[in-house]
Design a protein around this nucleic acid. Structure first.
Length: 569
RNA sequence: UGGGAAGUCGUCCAACGGCAGGACACAUGACUCUGGAUCAUGGAAUCGGGGUUCGAAUCCCUGCUUCCCAGCCA
């Protein structure tokens, strides 16, 4: 049995785990597995990063290896400590721990500088005086080879001198670069003498003004991996073309050979996953911030009410491959519902209230009815919910003229009030001017206390409700997909991704009524509002008024039926 | 027209020369004090064309499509 499951597991390894197991088998790197998660602190982490985090930390866990956290902080013009802090918080929240292995590419600036001198001495790097524009012109195009810079063949001595003076700040920003001397005719543009250092006078969040030259990604990343002894350096597909350069630097330097492996980044339907685009939404005020509950950021999802377990489960389920793909956001929502269904306490809240008066229920009577907290988990116990003559029910749970298959309340209909009694609708009161229904009148059957009829008669509908006198007023924010476009890479010519922002992605309901047991809910507390969805108390809550985010709705079979009925005519 | 990579149900991932399988989504039914959950059932795919082979999603050839690369971003 165990053998079989091991076999099954072995037969469904993704390509990265296949590589790792082969490496372990031949005892490469002494069988060591050491990965790293290398964010640039220039924005908040998103669900795409979660995929990478789960992969890198997960691999380390599975193969009894290590995973470092390394900030790729080589561009001081874009990076900030705010981002460093948020990234650490998000990784921890997701459930991963890098222990004391918190590194920064900036930790290696001095080592990198030494490596650069080593390359210059080997005649493999040179100081170039060409401007950015000139470098571009000299690079050639996709189909034509580039031209060598006139400064390419300076003497080693001159290069050493110039590079030292670059560091010393003798030249203005952009005046010179250090370039690797490789091949200006390479079909791979990354190999056409890539820039290793640029002169940039910007204050760095960690090194301050110590440096005025900064390593580029290509020069910093692989060497940082090597310095840390990273065995498997996992990155996304767009770096595939950089791999020859990654390997070239390591070979020329003769340092530990980390291996770069590329996988397809995550795309999700009805949203965008790109730090650049997310930053734009934040800066333009299209959302309230990086942690807007509609954002696919880790902080946004946390505020929305997502659990780390659901996110990790999602990352496990989507798998890892080299094919570019767009995962249906419904899978993410499924993982969320599955987790929340297990753990969320059920409560009753009426989002769009309408008064329901039970005419034959004594005016001054109050009953405390017992309600199960979670039918999926008996250990979560029960609570008492106040019941009285005047209640609120959901406006959409009453129809004066019910369509087919509608089995909620309607004139003459009997339904169950969850945990309470059967009630039968007798009449409604309408507003004289607008004709809008303002009150539904019912009678209740005292013999059905608790929701059971002694005579065994059944009702088709069960409604949630709250007692009007005891309800607390809350605000509820309903969220929908941030974008109306399923595939964000599919924007039609001449339009921008922001043209597809969903105008209905946020609906705020300010007149919601909730059972009093929740009055002390704290931000982050999650609940299932019976028959509606999972909700999470928001940080905007005050002592006067709680605010809840709808994390995700419950599956709504009736909505589907109704939609089908409507489209049929 | 250069270099690199990828094409399997609607979507995502498997199958590594031997019955194309799972999950989500969808549909149908059962059950239910949440039209939730749960359970059962069903439809649904190997980019095209050649070839090798007893046998091809898998190997070979060829065509097509898509993605990445011309930052002193990562």
């Amino acid at each position: 049995m165990a053998e079989k499951s091991a076999k099954e597991a072995a037969s469904s390894l993704d390509f990265i785990r296949t590589i790792i197991e082969e490496d372990i088998k031949v005892n490469k790197n002494d069988g060591r597995v050491h990965t790293r998660f290398p964010p640039e602190p220039n924005g908040y982490l998103h669900i795409g990063h979660a995929k990478s985090i789960c992969l890198n930390f997960g691999l380390a866990r599975e193969y009894k290896g290590l995973c470092n956290l390394r900030f790729d902080d080589t561009n001081p013009t874009k990076e900030e400590v705010e981002y460093v802090d948020s990234i650490k918080e998000d990784i921890r929240w997701l459930g991963f721990d890098w222990k004391d292995r918190e590194y920064y590419a900036s930790d290696y600036f001095e080592t990198l500088y030494g490596y650069a001198i080593q390359l210059i001495k080997a005649g493999k790097a040179y100081v170039d005086d060409l401007s950015a524009d000139e470098i571009r012109e000299f690079r050639g195009t996709l189909t034509e080879p580039g031209k060598e810079s006139p400064f390419r063949n300076r003497s080693i001595q001159e290069n050493l001198d110039l590079f030292e003076r670059m560091r010393a700040g003798e030249f203005p920003d952009g005046a010179r670069t250090l370039r690797a001397k490789i091949d200006m005719a390479s079909g791979n543009l990354n190999m056409r003498d890539p820039v290793m250092y640029r002169i940039l006078r910007a204050s760095h969040h960690r090194t301050g003004n110590d440096w005025c030259i900064y390593a580029t990604y290509d020069w910093a990343h692989g060497q940082s991996d090597s310095i840390e002894g990273i065995t498997h350096s996992i990155c996304t597909l767009e770096f595939e073309g950089h791999r020859p350069l990654y390997n070239w630097f390591i070979e020329q330097l003769g340092i530990f050979p980390s291996r770069q492996i590329e996988f397809a980044r995550l795309n999700l339907s009805y949203t965008v996953i790109s730090k650049r685009k997310l930053l734009q939404l934040v800066e333009e005020g299209q959302v309230s911030g990086w942690d807007d509950p509609r954002m696919p950021t880790i902080s946004g999802m946390r505020r929305r009410g997502y659990t780390p377990e659901a996110i990790r489960d999602f990352c496990d389920r989507i798998g890892v491959a080299k094919r570019e793909s767009t995962v249906d956001i419904a899978l993410l929502e499924h993982c969320l519902r599955e987790d929340l269904n297990r753990r969320a306490q059920r409560v009753m809240a009426v989002l769009r209230p309408i008064r329901l008066v039970i005419d034959n229920y004594p005016e001054d009577k109050l009953e405390m009815l017992e309600a199960v907290n979670n039918p999926e988990d008996e250990s979560m116990g029960t609570r008492k919910v106040p019941f009285s003559r005047i209640l609120y029910i959901e406006r959409e749970d009453f129809r004066e003229d019910p369509p087919k298959k509608y089995f909620r309340l309607a004139p003459g209909r009997e339904v169950r009030l969850k945990h309470a009694y059967y009630v039968t609708c007798k009449n409604v009161i309408e507003d004289d001017n607008t004709g809008e229904i303002v009150e539904v009148h019912c009678t209740y059957d005292p013999e059905t206390r608790g929701g059971w009829a002694k005579d065994g008669r059944r009702v088709k509908g069960t409604l949630h409700w709250v007692s009007a006198d005891h309800a607390i007023d809350v605000e509820v924010r309903l969220y929908d997909h941030l974008f109306t476009l399923e595939d964000s890479s599919n924007v039609t010519e001449g339009t921008d991704f922001k043209d597809y922002l969903n105008p209905r992605s946020l609906e705020t309901l300010t007149d919601c009524k909730m059972e009093p047991s929740l009055k002390d809910a704290a931000p982050g507390d999650r609940f299932q509002f019976l028959r509606q969805g999972y909700f999470c108390a928001d940080a905007d809550s005050t002592k006067e008024k709680l605010v809840f985010n709808r994390t995700v709705s419950l599956r709504d079979t009736w909505a589907k039926i109704e939609k089908a009925l409507k489209t049929k005519g």
